[in-house]
């Protein structure tokens, strides 16, 4: 009798915990989602409704005003195209360089003795950052200021991504390579005909990481581009949406926001548009990256 009562009590407690747990995690997930939803709602609302504080999660007085305002702003589209150009130049370059570097590093030491020196060469920059000013000087002295290469080249090498690729190549069964080697395949054909065809998940993960990295980078645009016409979108957004606020005090900012009300809906629209590419690749990214992270950060 007493045992049964205890059991029932335990299950009741467990059920209560389960319900609370679901509620809590649902709340946590919502806090990650709602700020974006709020921005979206603000961007589709009329300025008076926004400044009256009537907009929460759904547009009030639905209007496309702020998007029409954006459509009349050539700087925004210019910055968007700089960002796209950066992706088209930077991502393929990053992928080629990373894959080519990851393959030799995935060889065993007995096969490729120099690996142990190379690997240190790659690890040192990961541990010791050269610093902002010297990096800036290098780009400046190589004449890349205001050039698209200043955005694509320094960003193209990411040791973490190379290690992700390397670990994946190492997990491919040795038998496949051995069979190819017996058929007389050299390193180049082993990489392109044996390894790459079975590496789709990790290639997808790393490509998406590079896309997100290149898209989100803003500081390099700010320091390496003298002319605002060359700013990529995130840098443009930084100067438009964020840095104006830094210069004003909190109270001044509010006064200005009341005076120049259309500001907020326009900003929300820009923020949302700048996040669209990340939103677009995220479902694909999400499918692959967890295994990639686990593989890259913790291995036995």
């Amino acid at each position: 009798m007493r045992e049964a009562a205890k059991m029932r009590k335990a299950t009741a407690g467990m059920r209560a915990f389960a319900v609370l747990n679901y509620l809590f995690l649902a709340g946590v997930a919502l806090t990650c989602l709602l700020p974006m939803v709020n921005q979206l709602a603000v961007s589709f609302s009329s300025s008076p409704a926004v400044s009256a504080g009537r907009v929460y999660l759904w547009p009030v007085d639905f209007t496309l005003e702020s998007y029409e305002y954006m459509a009349g702003k050539p700087e925004f589209f210019k910055a968007f195209s700089v960002s796209l150009r950066r992706l088209l130049l930077g991502v393929p370059l990053s992928m080629v360089v990373s894959v080519l570097a990851a393959y030799p590093l995935s060889r065993q030491v007995h096969e490729f003795k120099a690996r142990k020196y190379y690997i240190w060469y790659f690890i040192v920059p990961m541990m010791f950052y050269g610093g902002l000013i010297p990096s800036y000087m290098v780009v400046r002295n190589t004449g890349l200021i205001d050039s698209a290469l200043a955005l694509a080249l320094p960003c193209s090498i990411n040791v973490f991504n190379i290690i992700l690729l390397m670990n994946f190549f190492r997990s491919i069964p040795k038998e496949m390579e051995e069979a190819a080697a017996i058929d007389g395949a050299g390193h180049v054909s082993t990489l392109f005909q044996i390894m790459l065809p079975v590496s789709a998940p990790v290639l997808a993960t790393v490509t998406l990481f590079f896309i997100v990295n290149h898209w989100n980078a803003w500081f390099d645009g700010l320091i390496y581009m003298n002319s605002p016409a060359n700013y990529p979108l995130q840098t443009y957004l930084q100067t438009q949406v964020v840095s104006q606020d830094i210069l004003s005090t909190e109270s001044l900012r509010d006064i200005r926001q009341i005076a120049n009300i259309s500001d907020r809906t326009g900003k929300a629209a820009q923020i949302f548009l700048a996040a669209i590419p990340v939103l677009a690749v995220y479902p694909f990214l999400q499918k692959h990256f967890t295994s990639g992270i686990v593989m890259g950060s913790v291995k036995g």
Binding site: P104, S135, T142, L153
Partner: peptide
Amino acid sequence: PLHAMLLPAVALLFVYSYIPLFG
């Protein structure tokens, strides 16, 4: 070919990581 494959990454790291390091 392994050394050749590493060359682009080694060169990029040299210019954008090692030179700043010595910088």
